[in-house]
């Protein structure tokens, strides 16, 4: 398992691995927001938590179509399916690698981008906490979507269509935590819901992803 994780991280970091693309996308989207809504700092500060959450979510989505498709194309997935590692573990490791290379950098970058959008002071902590709790769910749900569309030639667009509705609850609770945090309200309730969604997704979705992958491999 560790071997698979290390390989995926290595692949992401080497040339052409796409590491940093999601981060760059996140930066660009954030920079474009003031251009489209205007430079008033009060307005930007108000929408900052939501914009940052949406930007992080789209940046996560961006790299999903490579998550399993590359291993599918070069035959690794067939070989992994016949390896001693259960497919459930394989997809979990894949999701973990995706989170480490995409989700975690986004979490770390979010406060910096918060400065650009004039995020109010108390918001930083809750923005980071909510992203830290929410991005693993985004990776796991995304892996499910990637497993559904892995055999398809033009799977990228379909992948977005399938995954985005599944992202709705995570986005709502995650952005709610960040927004309430920024406005100084109690965050306990949405925070618990967000943590619950993440925990349940991580625990249960790998079984669905593995089942779907088995269907696609046959």
């Amino acid at each position: 398992m560790i071997a698979l994780l290390m390989r995926d991280l290595k692949l992401a970091l080497r040339a052409g691995g796409g590491f940093g693309l999601g981060l760059a996308f996140f930066l660009i989207v954030t920079v474009l927001v003031p251009f489209s809504v205007g430079p008033q700092s009060a307005l930007l500060g108000k929408i900052a938590p939501g914009v940052l959450w949406l930007g992080a979510l789209l940046a996560c989505l961006l790299s999903l179509d490579r998550l399993l498709a590359l291993d599918w194309e070069d035959g690794s997935l067939d070989l992994l399916a016949t390896a001693p590692l259960p497919l459930e573990s394989t997809v979990t490791i894949k999701a973990l690698a995706h989170w480490l290379t995409t989700g975690l950098p986004l979490v770390l970058a979010a406060p910096v981008l918060g400065v650009l959008l004039n995020l109010p002071g108390p918001g930083y902590l809750w923005l980071v906490v909510s992203l830290l709790l929410g991005t693993p769910a985004l990776s796991v749900i995304g892996t499910f979507g990637a497993a559904l569309t892995v055999g398809l030639k033009r799977g990228g667009l379909l992948l977005s269509l399938l995954v985005l509705p599944l992202y709705v609850p995570t986005l709502i609770f995650g952005a709610e935590v960040a927004r309430r945090g920024a406005e100084g309200f109690a965050v306990q309730m949405p925070l618990l819901m967000l943590a619950g969604i993440s925990a349940a997704s991580i625990a249960l979705l790998p079984f669905a992803s593995a089942a779907v992958l088995r269907v696609n491999l046959r």
């Binding site: 052409g16 070069d74 070989l79 390896a83 001693p84």
Partner: peptide, 30 residues
């Protein structure tokens, strides 16, 4: 759990070295 399968595609990663590719599969299989 007794089969090693070799398909048309070799499951190699172009950005890993020969030794890294092989070591990866060795550790996956123990």
């Amino acid at each position: 759990d007794r089969i090693a399968y070799a398909a048309h595609a070799d499951g190699l990663k172009p950005t890993l070295t020969v030794a890294e590719n092989l070591t990866f599969w060795a550790s996956v299989f123990g």
